[in-house]
Design a protein around this nucleic acid. Sequence first.
DNA 1: CTAAACGGAATGAATGTTCATTCCGCACTT
DNA 2: AAGTGCGGAATGAACATTCATTCCGTTTAG
Lengths: 227, 227
Amino acid sequence: MFIPHFEAMPKPDSPKIEKPLSVSEAKALQKQDAILSAALTLFAERGFHGTAVPDVAGLAKVGAGTIYRYFDSKEALVNGVFQQAKALLRDELLQDFDPQGDVREAFRLFWQRLTGFARRHPLEFRFLELQDHVPYLNDESRQLELQLLLPIHLFCQYARDQGIARDMNAGTLMAMIWGAVVGLFKAEHLGYLPAVTDDILFHAEQTCWDMFCRVPNPLPLHPAQPI
Amino acid sequence: MFIPHFEAMPKPDSPKIEKPLSVSEAKALQKQDAILSAALTLFAERGFHGTAVPDVAGLAKVGAGTIYRYFDSKEALVNGVFQQAKALLRDELLQDFDPQGDVREAFRLFWQRLTGFARRHPLEFRFLELQDHVPYLNDESRQLELQLLLPIHLFCQYARDQGIARDMNAGTLMAMIWGAVVGLFKAEHLGYLPAVTDDILFHAEQTCWDMFCRVPNPLPLHPAQPI
DNA sequence: CTAAACGGAATGAATGTTCATTCCGCACTT
DNA sequence: AAGTGCGGAATGAACATTCATTCCGTTTAG
């Protein structure tokens, strides 16, 4: 029996030999993918607790029992979905990303990749951002979370050391900018905004850059910060 | 029998006569409040589907059946919690809020009230922002949502007409700023940030103001926007 | 080359558990 | 004493998970 062990985080020491897959192995992979895809759809829409495993099976066109051939439990399934989505986001965001280059250009690239991800993979984006995953995430999932956060954090730090980014805690700035993107797409999804067009995204990028970078503020609230 | 009908949106025509409450009526109100408070705590923590009604009863120190004396169903309960929290937010945000006054000052006031709410009522804030409520909200809840959004939207519009706010769709700007605040407190709650101090909030306010307002950008990405 | 036999994969009805909701007897008020 | 409100056990529906059975591709015997 070939059960494809779900893996979003290849070990660094695994030689990644490209074995030609047998027909049955290919089928198994397809089936696992159908299950993950169906689960993503329903989890993104109804949340973890709001989704019944047999419903996932139905959408994946698979027997309920089959899911348990691929995942130990519903919790393992949601971790699989999380890891696949998070790894995709990580790869799209950080592919050839050079945090030490031109800050303005890097910011633009980061923005385009993040918003591009939100548009091309709306289910993944909603699943990752609009849920509280903490209660069921396992160590591997947490690990992935950090793999994504750390480079971004370093970039913010670098931009700040360069005197370009605002003189604020890097994590705080990052949380606000990320939050702004999430807020934008959340409002679109909830119908509070018309579709987010390229034009809107262009202006939104400028807006977020103005958050990010040190600007001479034309209307300071107070001459100096009160203690 | 006196069952206090839960009401977050007083009808405009109701004269609001302050009847002296009998002892039993006061007790009933207390009990209803205990139920709402317990439900808020658990819903904020585990979400709607992740929370069992008997658990709410346990936390409220009330029999499971008693909840159904005050709310028709679990769905009615979550709508009650939603309406109470949303009405509180609305009242704290919009009390004497003058959208036609000084824009900078109004923005600062708005910021302080929103972040103040997030800090003083973390459960309400998390419940309102970190969940997808849409599937179970009733008309009254939706109505409340709009009562909050509309004045803010008008303020953004006004600030834009004054040439102060950025030349962007008002709703878009609003969604991004709101998102930034949510992102900030979400990151704090998830442990990605140390506690959000007054100092951080001061800088964060400046940051969001720089999103909001038109600024001469020192590092434009392109000379003009591409079509 | 055909067909019977085999073994792993898939299935979905069956199982035990959890949950929302109801019900009923008790306690307290009037 | 009558009636109302309450608690929490009881109920039935829905759920996650299991498992006896079926299905299907491959192997082996004739």
